[in-house]
């Protein structure tokens, strides 16, 4: 089957990346918020079970 040479639109490419980039950015932001706690003075408590980690 013959196809016409039709270049993918840059806007379509940007949209495709945005669709996956936005949820990922939200996840990174939320993890970053957690990571900041490591550098803030915190009241020390007893050892707690491990929170979720990406293995």
């Amino acid at each position: 089957m013959a196809h016409e040479m039709k270049k993918s639109s840059p806007a379509l490419i940007a949209l495709a990346w945005l669709l996956v980039g936005l949820p990922l950015a939200w996840g990174v932001y939320r993890s970053g918020q957690n990571a900041v706690k490591l550098f803030q003075p915190q009241p020390v408590a007893v050892t707690a079970p491990a929170p979720p980690a990406a293995k």
Binding site: A35, Q40, T47, A48
Partner: peptide, 27 residues
Amino acid sequence: ASPMIQDFFKGHIGVAAATGFVGMLSL
């Protein structure tokens, strides 16, 4: 990860900071 850093730095690293450590590892 979380209990390990708390045990290694007893008195310095609390639960919240340990959560931060886990977040760093994930990133």
